[in-house]
């Protein structure tokens, strides 16, 4: 997952919306764990378009 921290407002909305509970907002950054299944929910919901899916390796 690519986070644009110049846009991110640290609202935690993505964390609360993640169906896999794969996003954790600590004090300053978003942490994504291995449970992420690239469903893209956080990407479409982010109010400021701060998230993008990485291209598959």
């Amino acid at each position: 997952m690519i986070v644009n921290y110049d846009k991110c407002l640290h609202c935690g909305g993505c964390a609360g919306s993640c169906p896999k509970n794969a996003i954790f907002l600590n004090d300053y950054i978003l942490v994504f764990n291995d449970d992420c299944n690239r469903c893209g929910r956080c990407v479409r919901l982010c109010p400021v378009q701060a998230l993008a899916l990485e291209a598959r390796a």
Binding site: L9, G12, G13, A15, G16, N21, L25, C46, P47, V48
Partner: peptide, 24 residues
């Protein structure tokens, strides 16, 4: 809204897409 403690404790707090609002 992040509601992670409940999920770690085993309570499903997942919300359907229809039941959430993204705000600014």
């Amino acid at each position: 809204y992040e509601s992670q403690v409940g999920r770690w404790a085993g309570i499903d707090t997942n919300v359907k897409l229809n039941d959430l609002n993204s705000c600014i």
